[in-house]
Design a protein around this nucleic acid. Structure first.
Lengths: 191, 191
DNA sequence: CTTTAATTAGACTGAATGGTCTATCTTAAT
DNA sequence: ATTAAGATAGACCATTCAGTCTAATTAAAG
């Protein structure tokens, strides 16, 4: 029994998946209409344009998803580095991420250079998750001369990069192989 | 004085830049026509469809560009790791790469999951450059238990990731900051 | 010079695009 | 029961899309 969702929520869910896989320009209104099985009048009742729809998806679907994903368990015993490593490894469990890469990164590459509104919405999410990693890493001692801001960007770059490699052979194993050196390096930074 | 190029070559150059920045679905025939300042008849005389044009761009522009970029100087004296580091740092000199990211990675994320022909053309280039890195690293001694295949993917993932981070603040400095830890790590692998 | 092939030119086509509009139906408040 | 707001429905619109077609022009070959 599926939980009854409001029409607006259903629309956001459908658009999220369509845009995730096909991109913004690769997703047409007719695809959205078909996927939602909703008349055009309803769609444009809730949103005033395609762009508004996708910006809403970014704020109401993508942002919470990213936030939840990097919601580090507040485990006082564990070293920050180990919590971070757990999170990175945990990504390998998400089939969609392995198959299609990071939805934020995909949208970023497609839209940020051609639309300011997309750019700022995406940058906001990016800064937010980077800050969360910074906060996490500040909790434990690291090797001296480690700039935590830079290290956080390095970690994100690694994960996004590993998820974006040629998808033909994309698999959980391949992702874990690729980030194994990142994990190596992170471990070496524990005071 | 600009070198006289054949019409076909001019078309490929124009499409390369348009697709690099706007993506495949974000680039329309009218944009291409305008940029080339060439009538439609000529365009469709050389290529039978938009898709054929972009596949030709991948093979005749993107592939050689990538190949040339990872054409490691055959310096016998230098350690492979140092040659690789030089190449990675050299990327910071390319303004376009810093601003828009890796063209192969952009196209990969947009097209690989929705079109098999794009996927295979892109994967081919990807495998090729990875093999070049593998060959390079095989020339010098590294720490034992280093799997060079995996390490090569790790390096590519890093660079692509670093180039794809939120573009608002994208800059040479930021790129270099992000990969500084990669360079650290690579140095530590020299026997 | 003549013939043939390559190229240029752009008007035109049908389908698809994002978006509008009015009418109807449903729900909730009075 | 009445009214008003919210939501559904889909026909319709101008524009743009990728692609076709025929005619004119240019270049190459004999």
């Amino acid at each position: 029994m599926k939980k009854k969702q409001s029409t607006r929520e259903e629309i956001l869910d459908a658009i999220f998946m369509l845009v995730y896989i096909n991109g913004y320009n690769g997703t047409s209104m007719s695809m959205i209409l078909k996927e939602c099985n909703i008349p055009k009048g309803s769609l444009y009742h809730y949103f005033k344009s395609k762009k508004e729809m996708v910006l809403a998806v970014i704020k109401e679907r993508l942002a919470p998803r990213m936030d939840k994903f990097y919601n580090f368990t507040d485990n006082e015993n564990k070293h920050s580095i180990d919590i971070l490593i757990d999170t990175i490894i945990n990504i390998s469990q998400k089939e969609q991420l392995i198959k299609y890469g990071c939805p934020l990164n995909r949208l970023n590459q497609e839209m940020s250079s051609i639309d300011k509104d997309f750019e700022s919405a995406i940058t906001q999410i990016y800064n937010h998750i980077r800050e969360k990693i910074v906060l996490l890493l500040n909790k434990s001692n690291l090797e001296k001369d480690i700039n935590i801001e830079k290290l956080s960007e390095f970690v994100i770059a690694n994960v996004w990069g590993a998820l974006s490699l040629s998808p033909t052979q994309s698999s959980k194993k391949r992702y874990l192989d690729t980030i194994s050196y990142l994990i190596d390096y992170l471990k070496s930074l524990k005071n």
